[in-house]
Simulated scan of single mutants.
Amino acid sequence: MTKQVIVEKIDAFLIDEFEVDPEELVPGANLKESVGLDSLDFVDLVVAVESNFGVKLVGDDFVNIVTLQDFYDLIERKLD
Rank of each mutant, 00 (worst) to 15 (best):
G36W: 05
V47R: 10
Q69G: 08
D60L: 13
F18P: 02
P27T: 09
Q69L: 11
V5M: 10
A12L: 13
L31S: 08
V55S: 07
L31I: 15
Q4E: 10
E19C: 08
K56D: 11
V66M: 00
V20F: 02
D61H: 13
L25M: 04
D73H: 04
K9S: 04
D41M: 14
E8H: 13
F53T: 03
D61Q: 12
I10V: 15
N64F: 14
I65N: 03
I65C: 02
N64T: 15
A29K: 03
G28L: 02
S51K: 15
E8M: 09
I65Y: 01
V20C: 03
V43W: 13
G28R: 01
D70L: 05
L14Y: 02
V20Q: 04
K9V: 06
E19W: 07
D60R: 14
D60A: 12
K56T: 14
L25N: 02
A29F: 10
E76Q: 04
V35F: 11
F18W: 10
F71T: 10
V20K: 00
D21A: 01
Q4L: 04
D44S: 14
E76I: 04
I10Y: 01
S34P: 03
D70A: 08
E24Y: 09
D80H: 10
K9P: 00
K3L: 03
D41C: 14
G54Q: 12
T67W: 04
N30P: 04
G54V: 14
L40R: 11
D16F: 01
F13S: 05
E17T: 12
M1A: 02
I10D: 03
L37V: 09
T67S: 15
I6F: 00
F71S: 09
D60T: 13
D80C: 06
N30V: 10
P22G: 11
F42A: 05
K9L: 07
L31P: 10
